[in-house]
């Protein structure tokens, strides 16, 4: 990993954006990295536009918010539209779920479709694990934290009624990511 990486996860409140960000932060922490996390609050986290910011670094973090995302994970169209500009251009990586997001073909960032909700519906029988599949696929492609650390974070940090579902979603997303390549 380079010195510092900024990750922006975004979507609709209720899609699990805040949980995904906090699990990524917990995984980075467990791995011994410096990390800061910051999420939408209040009504935004309950059906509105929602984002979760995570900064990971090998050195102490000066400014803890995302100023230019190295990685964006988008779970909804409005969030994608709003935050694409927050993503570094042209080097930023954008992960989106094609079930909910039609990407901007003229964007300079490298974009990759992760069929997370389709995969969740097909394999888990519910779309609920899509956030974790997206997160895990992103980790699989970028290696920003180790999959072991992410798995542990998911086991320790998921609400108990979703723990089993999320553990399966991590494995699904990781396998999905192994077959994904940026254009």
């Amino acid at each position: 990993m380079s010195e510092s990486r900024q990750v922006l996860l975004c979507g609709l409140g209720g899609q699990g954006v805040v949980l995904a960000g906090s699990l990524l932060g917990a995984a980075a922490f467990a791995q011994g990295l410096h990390v800061s996390g910051n999420s939408s609050y209040g009504s935004a986290a309950r059906g509105g536009q929602c984002r979760s910011e995570v900064v990971l670094s090998n050195i102490p973090i000066r400014f803890p918010y995302v100023t230019s995302a190295d990685i964006m994970v988008a779970l909804s169209q409005p969030a994608y539209d709003r935050y694409l500009d927050w993503t570094a251009s042209p080097d930023g990586l954008v992960f989106y779920d094609p079930a909910d997001v039609t990407p901007d073909g003229s964007a300079a960032q490298r974009q990759i479709a992760v069929p997370a909700s389709a995969s969740a519906a097909e394999t888990l029988g519910t779309r609920l694990g899509a956030n974790i599949i997206m997160l895990s696929a992103m980790v699989s492609v970028t290696d920003i934290v180790s999959i072991e650390a992410l798995k542990r974070a998911v086991t320790d940090g998921s609400p108990s009624r979703f723990r089993n579902l999320n553990e399966r979603a991590v494995d699904l997303g990781f396998a999905l990511g192994l077959n994904l390549h940026f254009p």
Partner: peptide, 10 residues
């Protein structure tokens, strides 16, 4: 500030 209350850090 809300900025430090809701922030997560090490």
């Amino acid at each position: 500030e809300a900025a430090t209350m809701h922030l997560r850090e090490i």
